[in-house]
């Protein structure tokens, strides 16, 4: 049984968001890079838990990015991935990225492909669905629980106003969110082992990018909070009703 976990490099959740080069590029000065939390805490850790139950499971990691992604890949290997593939490109178009991953997925013959539900930088939530389409597999999005029974997966996923439990035969593509697993810290043995685990760098396949980022903007600054005295709650209600028209 082979699992492919897709991971992405993102700025730490507390990073200051700013842009350079005439607002066309994310300002990386002082930014700490992490594995996208949804990819790490939920997709990767759940794959590792499955491998702990069944040691015959092999976990491959894939990321699409330049050499500055290698530290986060090594961390993912330290947590418990067996091998990693990095597709060497910095293109940000979701179709382009998904098509690169689909190439890897088709060659590798994976039973299960896991991603986070979205990245915390571009918030696209697109890659898993696109990969599923390109490899022609069923897709279960926003999964909160995942159990394996032989070649069948039982998956709980979020739907509007609740959740549903689905059974599906492998192979399947699943996007993961809170509930799947808990964050882990790599141990020293894992970190040492990760140094010698295979990290293959592949050049991207010839795929057309369908979108491009022209510029970034920061939201207009808030006008500032209007404070109301705790002894005059009626004034807050008046403001919400008459000024903000929110109630």
């Amino acid at each position: 049984m082979k699992i492919l976990v897709c991971v992405s490099k993102t700025p730490d959740t507390t990073s200051k968001i700013a842009f350079t080069n005439g607002n066309t590029k994310f300002d990386e000065a002082g930014v700490q890079w992490i594995i996208n939390p949804y990819d790490e805490w939920y997709a990767l850790v759940r794959a590792i838990e499955l491998k702990e139950k069944d040691p015959s499971i092999v976990i491959h990691l894939v990321t699409v990015g330049l050499a500055d992604c290698d530290p986060i890949i090594r961390k993912a290997l330290a947590l418990g991935g067996d091998e990693a593939i990095r597709i060497n490109t910095d293109n940000s178009d979701s179709y382009y990225i998904a098509a690169q991953i689909a190439e890897v997925a088709k060659k590798g013959g994976y039973d299960l492909i896991l991603t986070g539900k979205e990245t915390i930088d571009y918030n696209g939530s697109s890659i898993a669905g696109m990969v599923a389409e390109l490899v022609d597999a069923p897709y279960v999005s926003l999964a909160t629980l995942f159990e394996l029974n032989g070649t069948t997966a039982s998956i709980t996923r979020e739907i509007e106003g609740g959740e549903e439990v689905a059974e599906v035969s492998l192979p399947v593509v699943v996007s993961c969110q809170k509930g799947m697993a808990e964050q882990r810290i790599p141990n020293m043995r894992g970190i040492m082992a990760a140094r010698t685990k295979p990290l293959q760098v592949a050049e991207p396949a010839a795929i057309d990018a369908l979108t491009s980022i022209l510029s970034f903007e920061l939201p207009p600054a808030k006008a500032g909070v209007k404070l109301v005295s705790p002894d005059n709650v009626a004034e807050l209600v008046r403001l919400l009703h008459e000024e903000a028209k929110a109630i």
Binding site: D93, S94, Y95, A98, A99, K117, N123, G124, S125, S126, I127, A128, G129, M130, A132, E133, L134, Y139, S141, L142, E158, I159, E160, L210, T211
Partner: peptide, 23 residues
């Protein structure tokens, strides 16, 4: 961009080989 939109829009875009902007 609801739970359904998130599940379906990107997959449909890939099928159509159409560029997508979500959110």
């Amino acid at each position: 961009h609801t739970q359904t939109g998130k599940a379906v829009s990107a997959r449909t875009a890939a099928r159509l080989k159409a560029g997508i902007v979500t959110g």
